[in-house]
Amino acid sequence: MNAFASFRALGTEETLQLGLVGAGIAASRTPAMQEREGAAHGLRTVYRLFDTPLATPDDLGALVRAMELCGYAGFNVTYPFKIAILDHLHELDESARIVGAVNTVVLRDGRRIGFNTDLGGFTDAFAETMTGAARRRVLQIGAGGAGLAVAGGLLDCGVEELFVHDLDHERARLLVQRLEEQGRGRVRAVSSVEGAYDGIVNATPIGTDKRPGLPYPIERLGPETFVVDVNYFPLESQLIREAKARGCRTMGGAGMAVGQAVRAFSCFTGLRADRERMMAAFLALGA
């Protein structure tokens, strides 16, 4: 039984209830994408934000139980709960087991099933945007919840050597260890961002509206370097803007954001989402 069948069975067949749990998410574009895609499939979709910056692990569990009681089909999870949510789930999809973090939870037949659509969302966007780009040596900055998915996606897309830097050196080490346990020996942690790289990937909050700045010294970028920023607040970060000015091939956060939403919609409903339609909903909200 898919999630669509589950919410119909609860007697709420006219409304698909979804949500997003995170901190500082008031400007999220996910509600617009999911509600408009649901409408395109004839579903009255209500997508609510649960902005809970002070939530404890116990609070998180209580929130999940409340969603179940209210007939939710599922919810998305973002910073800072992508790892904490693991303790409140019954089952993990292969995508979540690989990454070790969850951004999508389906509530089905009394069970909570965790998925990671960030991984596939990033891979889809990177493969489309960076066709033909050199990827022998790539530096990823950031090893948090999003960083886990991004690192796996980069390796899936053929990066030969991946170097991971995080101000929390232990977090970078644990990310590398997790990938090595999966048989991926092409990644190692580095204590600085110095070195020559074919690509730079920002998977930190640096450069967002709330944490302006540059995660990488812009003067080190040459036109042959590709630059990725997984953030989309703002839609074009300072890093992406300045990399473009230097002639670099760039990829902003819109592609990954839409890609993960496309996959999440299918997890929730069992229906195939239209990527172009969801991108249009994303971009309709402006810069």
Rank of each mutant, 00 (worst) to 15 (best):
A3N: 07
F7V: 14
R8N: 08
R8E: 11
A9H: 01
T15K: 14
G19W: 11
A23S: 14
A23N: 09
I25N: 06
I25Q: 09
A27H: 14
A32D: 04
A32S: 11
M33W: 07
A39Q: 13
H41I: 15
G42W: 06
G42S: 03
G42T: 03
L43S: 07
L43A: 00
R44D: 12
L49Y: 08
T52H: 11
A55I: 07
A55T: 01
A55P: 09
A55W: 05
A55L: 08
T56V: 02
T56Y: 04
T56N: 04
T56I: 06
P57G: 08
P57W: 10
D58C: 12
L60G: 02
R65D: 15
A66P: 04
E68I: 01
G74M: 15
F75W: 11
V77E: 03
Y79I: 14
I83H: 13
A84N: 11
A84D: 14
L86V: 02
H88V: 07
H88L: 03
E94R: 09
S95N: 00
A96S: 05
R97P: 05
R97T: 05
I98M: 15
I98G: 11
V99L: 00
V99P: 08
G100T: 04
A101R: 00
G110A: 00
I113G: 02
L119F: 15
T123F: 13
D124V: 10
A127S: 15
A134E: 08
R136I: 12
R136N: 15
L139S: 03
I141C: 01
G142K: 09
G144E: 14
L148P: 05
L154R: 04
D156C: 03
E161S: 13
F163W: 02
V164D: 06
L167V: 07
E170V: 08
R171D: 03
L174E: 14
L175M: 08
V176S: 01
V176Q: 06
R178Y: 11
R178N: 01
L179N: 09
L179K: 00
A189K: 02
V190D: 06
S192E: 13
S192F: 08
G195D: 06
D198A: 07
V201R: 06
A203F: 01
A203K: 03
I206F: 12
I206V: 13
K210S: 13
P223M: 06
V227T: 04
V227Y: 02
D229I: 06
S237L: 02
L239E: 01
I240D: 10
R246Q: 03
G247A: 09
C248K: 12
C248T: 05
T250H: 05
M251H: 12
M251K: 05
A254M: 12
A254Y: 04
M256A: 13
G259T: 00
Q260M: 12
A261N: 07
V262K: 09
R263M: 01
A264G: 02
A273L: 14
M278G: 09
M278K: 07
A281M: 04
F282D: 02
L283C: 03
L283H: 10
L285W: 00
A287M: 10
